[in-house]
């Protein structure tokens, strides 16, 4: 299989992914498992789980990982460039158009309406994330402290991520991590 094919496959997966990285799973299933037989259902589940428990965008991590599996380091890079390629083209064109017409009253009104929808979509996304993430008292505590602190303090989100990661390491070293042991996403 050539690099071009790998690039095109992931460009196709990029085009078909709408929304967050989780939207990618059914498309990966069809393209990698059903059509190309590159991976079994279990392998794909593993790839995807790894994409979620490494830092960064899930879709990008999964593409890098599968590309690397198929064709080594250069494969990882090619697959990742493939998955972002459609976004680069489509968003650049749209952003250009929107910038050009941003001052028209009807565009301003349309986006004022859309912003209301964005609030509701963020709320819905949070409810979904909450169900997967907040499963213990500890998780609830972390959620509450970070949500409050980030609302009222003006710190970089990086600080919260680093502190929470350190907390995870310390709790595990002290064997104080509650529940959920061995359970995988």
């Amino acid at each position: 299989m050539s690099y071009l094919k790998l690039f095109l496959l992931f460009a196709k997966i990029g085009v078909m992914t709408f929304g967050g990285g989780y939207a990618m799973l059914p498309i990966l299933q069809r393209e990698l498992v059903d059509t190309r037989h590159w991976a079994t259902e279990e392998e794909l589940a593993d790839y995807f789980a790894i994409g979620q428990c490494t830092p960064g965008i899930i879709a990008v991590n999964t593409a890098t990982f599968i590309g690397h599996k198929r064709k080594g380091i250069s494969g990882g890079i090619v697959a990742t460039l493939g998955v972002v390629f459609p976004s680069l083209i489509i968003i650049t064109i749209l952003a250009g158009l929107i910038t050009t017409f941003a001052d028209l009253p009807f565009v301003q009104n349309a986006f004022a309406g859309i912003r209301v929808c964005v609030c509701v979509l963020i709320f819905n996304a949070v409810v979904k994330l909450w169900k997967g993430a907040v499963k213990s008292i500890l998780a609830f505590g972390i959620f509450l402290v970070v949500a409050l602190a980030a609302t009222f303090l003006n710190l970089s989100p990086a600080i919260y991520v680093l502190i929470t990661a350190a907390l995870g390491i310390i709790l595990e070293a002290l064997h104080a991590m509650p529940g959920e042991r061995g359970k995988k996403a």
């Binding site: 593993d46 789980a49 790894i50 979620q52 428990c53 490494t54 609030c119 963020i122 709320f123 996304a125 949070v126 994330l129 909450w130 997967g132 993430a133 907040v134 213990s136 500890l138 998780a139 609830f140 972390i142 959620f143 509450l144 402290v145 970070v146 949500a147 409050l148 980030a150 609302t151 989100p157 919260y160 991520v161 929470t164 990661a165 907390l167 995870g168 390491i169 709790l171 595990e172 070293a173 991590m177 959920e180 042991r181 061995g182 995988k184 996403a185």
Partner: peptide, 27 residues
């Protein structure tokens, strides 16, 4: 890496933190 207990523990803490950060941005 994925089966490592420290990695698991870090992500168990990071997911609620990430959710909290998104709540703040949403607000």
């Amino acid at each position: 890496f994925r089966d490592n207990r420290f990695v698991n523990s870090v992500f168990l803490c990071l997911r609620p933190a990430s959710t909290g950060l998104i709540v703040a941005s949403g607000l």
